[in-house]
């Protein structure tokens, strides 16, 4: 019972946080909906554990907790991959930007040779 209460409290906290960030335009409406649904699902599954067991049996996995664990691993792995790709793209863009600024603000020597 303790775990259910703690998790529900955390889920509520996360949803409130997301709403706040949405109000400050830090996340899009899309992510507000996705995260709210996700946390709602988490609360639902912790409140009614046999719900996930039913679902797990339906897709051929023994326990609901296992199903949730598998899903979490898949989703997190994909999220990390996406973030690596974005990081590399940002890094390349950053280099281009830094290069453009450097070339733009180049400083010639006071006494130039025959150039």
């Amino acid at each position: 019972m303790v775990f259910q209460i703690l998790l529900t409290l955390f889920a509520l906290f996360a949803i409130i946080k997301t709403i706040g960030q949405y109000r400050r335009s830090q996340v899009s409406k899309y992510w507000l909906v996705v995260f709210t649904l996700l946390w709602a699902a988490v609360v639902l599954v912790t409140a009614i554990p046999h719900l996930s067991d039913m679902l797990a049996g339906y897709v051929g996995i023994g326990r609901g907790a296992d199903l949730i664990l598998y899903c979490a691993v898949v989703v997190l792995t994909y999220a990390v991959y996406r973030s690596i790709v974005r990081d590399q793209k940002l890094s390349a863009e950053m280099t281009s930007l830094v290069r453009a600024v450097a070339i733009n603000q180049a400083q010639a020597p006071e006494t130039e040779k025959n150039i």
């Binding site: 950053m94 280099t95 290069r99 450097a102 180049a106 400083q107 020597p109």
Partner: peptide
């Protein structure tokens, strides 16, 4: 580098 007579370009962030 400027004092020594080079053209100087600055990366504003280390790349």
């Amino acid at each position: 580098a400027h004092a020594a007579g080079a053209y100087v370009l600055r990366h504003i962030v280390n790349r």
